[in-house]
Amino acid sequence: MKLNNLTAQQKKVAQMLVDNEFGLLSEDGKKLPVDTVAEMGGIAKSTVYEWKKKPEFRAHMNELADGALDSNRAEVYAAIMKLVRGGANAVPSVKALDLYMRRFGLLTDKHLIETGEDVRRREISPEERQQALDKLDRMLDGKAE
């Protein structure tokens, strides 16, 4: 998206709208009403809604929001680590542990296959699973080995 398509005022209001979503415009961290943000930006509330309909304005807001999230990544990781450590009660959050392990590729999903009357369970690889599916497809097509 070309920012040249937006005026300085549109860029300013887009930043204010994003800041408002993150609770950065008010002292208590709560979102302000759109008419308040519009007034702060020197425009009418209806103008905000008109601008928000424009793809280039929405794209700019999305870029700003992505940047705001990216700049807070360390804070997010710190919050996850607090949950992993268990906080005051020293009981770790299972979900936080799951997120941590998945983030670093240390946890993967298991797929189990049950066969026959004597049920045996074993972990299979994605390649073995695909081979079994291919074999079933051949059997269904009448081309069993």
Rank of each mutant, 00 (worst) to 15 (best):
E21Y: 14
L24K: 12
V37L: 09
G29I: 01
E27T: 14
D28T: 10
V48D: 01
E27D: 15
Y49E: 01
M40N: 07
G41V: 07
T47E: 05
F22T: 03
K30R: 13
P33G: 03
G29Y: 06
A44N: 14
L25A: 03
T36K: 14
N20C: 10
I43M: 13
P33R: 13
L24P: 00
L32I: 08
E21L: 15
M40Q: 13
E21S: 15
L24V: 00
N20F: 07
D35Q: 05
F22C: 05
D35S: 06
K30D: 12
E39D: 08
T36L: 02
F22P: 05
D19L: 12
G23M: 09
A44D: 14
G42W: 06
P33M: 07
D28I: 02
K31Q: 14
G42C: 07
L25E: 07
M40A: 12
A38L: 07
G23Q: 09
K45C: 09
E39L: 11
G29F: 05
F22L: 12
G23T: 03
G23V: 06
V48K: 06
A44E: 14
Y49T: 08
K31Y: 00
N20G: 10
A38I: 04
D28A: 11
P33S: 05
K45A: 13
F22W: 14
K31R: 15
K45V: 12
E39T: 11
G41R: 02
V37S: 10
V34W: 00
I43P: 03
V48E: 02
D35K: 11
A38G: 06
D19T: 00
A38R: 11
A44F: 04
V37G: 10
D28L: 07
F22H: 12
M40R: 13
V18W: 02
E27R: 14
N20R: 11
E39I: 00
K45Y: 10
L17Q: 10
T47P: 02
K31E: 12
V18L: 04
L32F: 06
L25I: 08
T36H: 06
V48P: 04
A38C: 06
V18Q: 03
E39Q: 11
T47M: 12
L32H: 07
T36P: 00
F22G: 02
E21W: 12
G42M: 08
E21D: 15
Y49A: 03
G29M: 05
L24A: 12
M40F: 09
K45W: 05
V18A: 11
A38E: 02
G41Y: 04
P33K: 14
L24I: 00
K45Q: 15
D19Q: 15
K30L: 12
L17V: 13
L17G: 09
L17M: 15
V18H: 04
G23E: 06
K30T: 10
D19E: 15
S26F: 01
L24N: 11
E27W: 11
D19A: 15
F22D: 02
V18Y: 02
K31V: 03
A44M: 11
L17C: 13
E27K: 15
T47N: 08
K31N: 10
G41N: 04
P33Y: 06
E21V: 13
D28Y: 04
Y49D: 04
N20P: 11
A44L: 13
L25Q: 09
V18D: 07
T47I: 08
L32Q: 12
